[in-house]
Each structure stands twice: as C-alpha cells, then as structure tokens.
Design a protein around this nucleic acid. Structure first.
Length: 418
DNA sequence: TCTGGGGTCCTAGGACCC
DNA sequence: TCTGGGGTCCTAGGACCC
C-alpha cells in the first residue's frame, strides 16, 4: 500500500497557523511582487477566485468579501514543511517527499487501520496544518484516494482507502479525466473530444492508441489506474537543473540594471549548487520583454554559455552568466523578466582537468568561507561588487507575515490572563 | 499600472560511429 | 530505376507536476 499525505491549501493554512482569528475566513497568498494568486483557503475557492489570477483583477472581490491577503513567505512555509515531513517519517519505514506539501509513504506489508487518522490528528496538533491522507495499491490511486478524502471531509474524516474492486471502480467513475495525476490540459482536451470524460473511460482505451497518442507515460497511467503499480518510490537525488528567475516590478531598459539582477540570480544559483555538492558546466541566461503588453516591441532571447571547466564558484558562474547577457542584450527594449539556469552537473568531488586552464582551485576554499560567513551573519552579507550592492530594486511585499518560526525577533507574544 | 517560480521526463530527429 | 544495417549521443521542444 502507498500512502499519500497532502496538506490542505498549504500556504494558506501556514498563514492561518499563527492567525487563528482567520479560521473559516477567506485567505489568499500572492506570488512575488504580490502579482498572482498562488494559494487559496476553501473559503476563497468558494468565491471563485481562480488559481493564478492576477491580483489587481480581483481587487473588488477581495474588498467586497473581506479576503485577507498575504505576500508569499517561503521561510515560513519551508520551515513548517520540514516539521511536517519529520513527523511523517516516524510513521513509516520509507518515505518520498514529493513536493513542499506532500509525501508518499510506504506501507507495504503493514496494517493501515487507524494509521491515517493518527497521522492527520498528530500533524494538526503538532503543527496546526490540516492534512488529508489517501491509501491505495499504486501511487496514482493514492493521489486519487487523497483527492476523495479532501473533497469529502465529513464523510471520510480526511482519510480514504481504496482497497477493494468496488471502491476502485466507483472512484474511477467519479474522477474527471483532467484530474488524473499525469494527464494535463493538452491530453485531457484531446480525450474529452473523444468523449472520454472519466478516469474509468480512460482505462477502457486500447494500449496501442494510448501509446501512439500519449507515449509510455500514458500507458503507465493506465496500469496504475487499474491497480498495477509501475511507479515506485524515488530516491532523493541532487537536482539536474537549478534556476532563479524573476518577473520585475518595473521595466528595465539599461544594461547595467539587468547586469545587476542577472549577477544576483547567478550568485543565488551558485549557492544552491554548492549546497547540493554539485558543479556545473553550462549556464543559461534569458531576458524577456512583457508578453502581456502586445503593443510594445517584443524581444525574448536566451543563450547557453558553456564553461570550459566545471565549477561551483560564484565568481566564475557570475562571470559566465554576464558574458551571456552581454551577447544577447539589445538596447531599445523594456525588459520585464529574466533568469539564470545552471545545467550539466557533476559531483563536486570529481575533477575533470582542462587542457587549456581549468577552474581556479583557490575558489573552493574561498566559497566555503563565504558560505560560512553568510550562514552565520545572514544571507548575502558577502557579495560580489557586481551584485546589487546599492539594491536598485525592491520586491513588492506589502502583506508579508512575520517569520514566526525562523526569526527570533518574530516569535509571537502571548498574554495570559489569570 | 499591475500578470509566479522551480522542477522532471519523454520523444523525434540530427549527427555521428563502424 | 535501383543506393545497407546497426548502433549511440545530443538537443529542442512538448507535456506534465507542485
């Protein structure tokens, strides 16, 4: 049996942990620069505020129904996520953290009676975050069971098990095709055109058709839906790409402005890269104008710069990112978005020597020291001069909540009455 | 005025090898 | 008129996830 534990409306629930006055009230969490809606409480969903909605288009709804807005606070969500994952780990002998707010738990050969409710109760009591639990013989069905638990909290108490043929058929006939894990918009549109509207209909399709139209990915989904497990637990492996990309709060026109941002993105990437003990061989830089503003001149360009050696030095990676930026930058455009992606990784223990001069070995210890100092004195205390020493930009975060659990200054004060 | 960010996997086709 | 057969590796783009 696979278990899937998934937090309900995770970001919104995190904000509510320290704001009990907001229980049963509509909450919305916004993306960077307070741009889009990225999480909603059930009450906000009931107001038909869609996922990804631009905040400015829903201002009236927010005002009218007294929706509480939050700027995204990833320090808070990350910390609560860690706490929840630590709890989940104690309930099974193997676990795969699938995202910031959900995990697959291995219950093969175990009794699961009462386990779901126990997990749910404990996580809520210890962290304040509500979760739903699904059990089933495959990962895809565990996702489905979880969805049922979430959709019918009263009937299921937030826990649902698919453990019989009757329950399986019933669930498959209930699940809409576009809600099947692994079937996205493109495929579900195609399937709906053929009058395949439920997961059950999909399981009746011929393998040949699925293979031709949806490749082996589609075939796997069919197997999984029928109860044959083909997706196993995945080991935690280092990332194969690391990126930092941003939409800006305003347009940039000058090379120097973009240089500062790109240098910063590349530096942040490098730090993440060292964190997972990798080196990279290539860095991709892209710059975009605002595609929502069709009346403006558009220019979108990216470039991959291959570094002739492998490195995780901020100095070397920033240098090559800026070489790339210089090549693709064109003046006369208003830039709204840009980013840096590191690719082509190898472990930082191996050393491929270069025929024509390799990485600067001195940087290895230098970066170690920089990381150490930044870890103790706060992020980005030590930076390159080309980074934003003057900080020309500021992220719009008007509704940012305190870092209740990660900053000693933000711990809440409780007044007790006798 | 305003419009998110960070990932993975698969496939087809090109370029190359003997 | 007619033009082999069996491989590998790499990349761009598509589709999907949270």
């Amino acid at each position: 049996m696979f278990g899937l534990v998934d937090c309900n409306n995770f970001f919104a629930s995190c904000e509510r942990v320290f704001r009990p006055d907001l229980a049963h009230k509509p909450i919305v969490v916004l993306s960077n620069n307070d741009g889009c809606v990225i999480a909603r409480s059930n009450e906000a969903k009931a107001l038909n505020i869609p996922m990804g909605a631009p905040a400015y288009q829903y201002k009236e709804v927010f005002d009218k129904y007294n929706v509480t807005l939050f700027s995204c606070n990833f320090a808070l969500y990350g910390d609560l996520s860690n706490r929840i994952m630590n709890i989940l780990r104690t309930h099974c002998f193997r676990m795969e953290q699938y995202s910031i707010d959900e995990a697959f738990l291995d219950f093969s050969g175990c009794k699961i009676e009462g386990v779901g409710l126990k997990i749910k109760t404990q996580v809520l009591k210890w962290t304040g975050v509500p979760v739903s639990v699904g059990f089933a013989p495959t990962k895809t069905l565990a996702k489905l069971a979880n969805r049922i638990a979430k959709k019918f909290p009263k009937e299921t108490e937030g826990v649902y098990v698919i453990d019989s043929q009757e329950k399986l058929i019933k669930a498959l006939k209930w699940l809409k095709i576009e809600d099947v894990w692994g079937i996205g918009r493109k495929s579900s549109n195609k399937l709906r055109a053929l009058n395949i509207t439920k997961a059950y209909d999909f399981t009746l399709l011929e393998d040949n058709w699925i293979k031709a139209n949806m490749s082996v990915v589609g075939l796997r989904i069919k197997q999984e839906l029928l109860g044959k497990s083909v997706l196993d637990f995945q080991e935690l492996e280092p990332r194969k790409n690391i990126s930092v990309t941003r939409t800006f709060d305003k347009n940039y026109t000058k090379f120097e402005e973009l240089r500062e941002r790109i240098a910063n993105f590349a530096a942040n990437c490098s730090e993440k890269l060292r964190n997972q003990h990798s080196c990279c061989h290539s860095v991709l830089v892209f710059i975009n104008t605002n595609y929502h503003r069709k009346e403006l001149d558009q220019y979108n360009q990216s470039i991959i710069v291959n570094i002739p050696f492998e490195t995780n030095s901020t100095i070397e990676i920033v240098h090559h990112a800026l070489v790339g930026l210089k090549r693709i930058f064109k003046s006369g455009f208003e830039y709204k978005r840009a980013g840096v992606i590191l690719m082509n990784f190898s472990p930082d223990t191996s050393q491929q020597l270069s025929l024509f001069g390799g990485r600067n070995i001195k940087h290895i210890s230098l970066m170690k020291t920089v990381d150490k100092i930044n870890a103790s004195l706060g992020n980005q205390k030590l930076r390159l001069g080309v980074q934003d020493t003057n900080r020309i930009w500021k992220m719009k975060q008007e509704k940012l909540s305190p870092n209740y659990t990660t900053n000693i200054a933000d711990i809440i004060t409780i007044k007790a009455k006798s």
